[in-house]
Design a protein around this nucleic acid. Structure first.
Lengths: 355, 355
DNA sequence: CTGAAAGCGCTAACAT
DNA sequence: ATGTTAGCGCTTTCAG
């Protein structure tokens, strides 16, 4: 880039009357410099195959010279394609949705889309306000981590006509598209797994968020059916902690659980953080894992494999969820109807040392 | 909302000729329904004080009836205010920047701004491509986690005229504004802290990312000056692991470090994850913490206080960083020049049991 | 393959 | 307090 720098002279355009606009370099400037019409410059940038090589070269050079960066607000307005995708997560803290958000960002970026992040908080109160601002941006898609329960929210999203992907859950009645897995199946599978390991007095520790509760319920039912837990209550022994879960709440919860049910020989934790707390507490009070107590977590957070003992846990392919969600949205944006808009991504019980 | 639903009849507008636009409800529709000019409806929504109560009522009712959601693409284009702020993080995985991103999102949302998330990866390669798409959105601000090192990136950002806040570091020459702390000061402070605790053979384990390396260097220098580490090398004993750090790499690194320097009595870890690995490994091989080995981490991740033993660590007020960055940008957006655009947020050594 | 015209939906500027 | 006009910077439509 040795040629003369651009704003050497910025010649006569229709005399910017008011002081509107940011006054930056526009496609017009590029076009003028390249000696073509603005629309041709636009084509050169967006559909390089549709213009002559000569024009392409000149436009590219003009872009170089000027340092032009297309204004996507204007482009989006004109084309009704914002190339923006909104993601709503309860919270970005906590490792649960990280993989999903990360792979979503990457997969979208590869196709020229960008991610707008919204946090709904664990209460649904903010979800509605968030929806308003999201729809206002006219994104080409919305990815919801967790399904949308508010009827009003569903209605507005539907009315907006924006492609929606709900994730991290399975529901027979998604708003639009869905990439998830069954919390009920997981609960049941874990109970069976523990039975297979010879455990006979199982319990659970879980956060009070909706999905964790549903895993627990299914776990509890299966455990009772299989006869591997105390039968004197209507649920398997359990302790509930506030979401978001922490190592500390796991420690406390284990003490609590053991106080009420000292013969517990296995715990299903609704997150690996909780499980780490259980492991920590067990070590502190001298309970051997897995000999005296089997521990199984949920999430397969990065540290799970490296713990001592290595944590047995339920793995969800968060990356796969993000990738599939991106694929759904990109397909839709391309005008193609999505063949099978409900995708069960499944889960895996990763057997390590703790259970 | 019992009145007749809106698109009862959508009367004569200038005969939408082509099939452009998304065909949704626009401000014009609302204005027509309220019996006012579009600009008046616009005012009613954006500056409620500037219109008569009567008009305000009618417009609001029309919005209700129609379910109108303003198109911020159009609004942003017209006003050169996108109400969008871009945040660039190396990665969203890993707990380091979470607090910052979270508080940033919240603080911005309170003022009607939204966050666009970009991941640069730990290599700077993608940072430049990212910059292009970011500037294209004409955000009202950019928050960089970590300072921008690429000269070209700095230039483009500067040229764009977008307010920029660099964070998580201190540099005498920020692009624009800065909210950070000194990695050098931290390294030195930790060395002094360990000296005060009577440690005489300190070492460090750190990831190979730039900031961690700088903390280590300062730590190392101070340690040598204070005479609390092996003096036969030009650096204090240390082990380097690949970023992002994991519990597993912490375990490995401790073994490595002790092999080469069996008399090490304190380790400074460049992250709490690493420290957790060190704790885990120490327990696994029967080393007593803190009696035989003091461990100090960095980050004060949520679980640090609940570990066994509770982890001594360096705390950075990530929430404060996010809040301050948001404040900087919002002030700028309001046209006010920011008084002191370089803000040192400091750090705290949180003394717990591990050191 | 290239271009002129006409907006996308909104708001700044200037009336009134 | 309200309205008129003229764009913001881009792309669609429709002609060459």
């Amino acid at each position: 880039m040795t040629s003369t720098p651009f704003p050497a002279d910025k010649p006569n355009r229709p005399e910017r009357r008011g002081r509107r606009g940011a006054g930056g370099i526009t496609l017009r400037d590029v076009a003028k410099l390249a000696g073509v019409a603005p629309i041709t410059a636009s084509r050169a940038l967006n559909k390089p195959d549709a213009v002559s090589p000569e024009v392409l070269r000149k436009v590219r050079e003009a872009v170089e010279r000027t340092g032009y960066v297309p204004n996507m607000l204007a482009g989006g307005l004109a084309s009704s394609k914002s190339r923006l995708v909104a993601a709503v997560v309860p919270t970005i803290a906590g490792p649960v949705f990280q993989e999903t958000v990360q792979s979503l960002t990457e997969a979208l970026a590869e196709h020229g889309y960008q991610l707008m992040l919204g946090q709904s908080g664990y209460q649904n109160s903010r979800e509605d306000a968030l929806l308003e601002t999201i729809i206002g941006r006219r994104p080409d898609g919305v990815v919801l981590t967790g399904i949308m329960r508010s009827a009003d929210g569903r209605r507005r999203l539907l009315a907006s006509g924006i492609p929606v992907v709900e994730t991290w859950d399975l529901t027979p009645t998604p708003i639009d598209m869905l990439v998830g897995f069954s919390h009920e199946q997981i609960g049941a599978a874990v109970a069976e797994f523990l039975q297979g390991k010879g455990r006979r007095r199982v319990g659970s520790i879980h956060g009070n968020d909706e999905r964790a509760v549903r895993r627990h319920r299914a776990f509890s039912e299966s455990a009772r059916r299989l006869g591997i837990c105390a039968q004197d209550q209507d649920m398997a022994p359990h302790a509930v902690v506030a979401a978001p879960t922490t190592l500390g709440s796991g420690r406390t919860a284990l003490r609590e659980l053991l106080e009420r049910h000292p013969d517990t020989d296995a715990v299903f934790c609704s997150s690996d953080v909780l499980a780490l707390g259980v492991l920590t507490e067990a070590q502190a009070i001298g309970i051997k894992v897995p000999q005296q107590l089997a521990v199984i977590g949920f999430g397969d957070f990065t540290y799970a494999r490296d713990l001592h003992p290595a944590l047995t846990t339920v793995r969800i392919d968060g990356t796969g969820i993000g990738r599939k969600a991106a694929q759904f949205i990109i397909e839709r944006a391309g005008g193609r109807p999505v063949a099978d808009p409900i995708h069960d991504i499944g889960f895996t019980i990763i057997e390590r040392d703790s259970a």
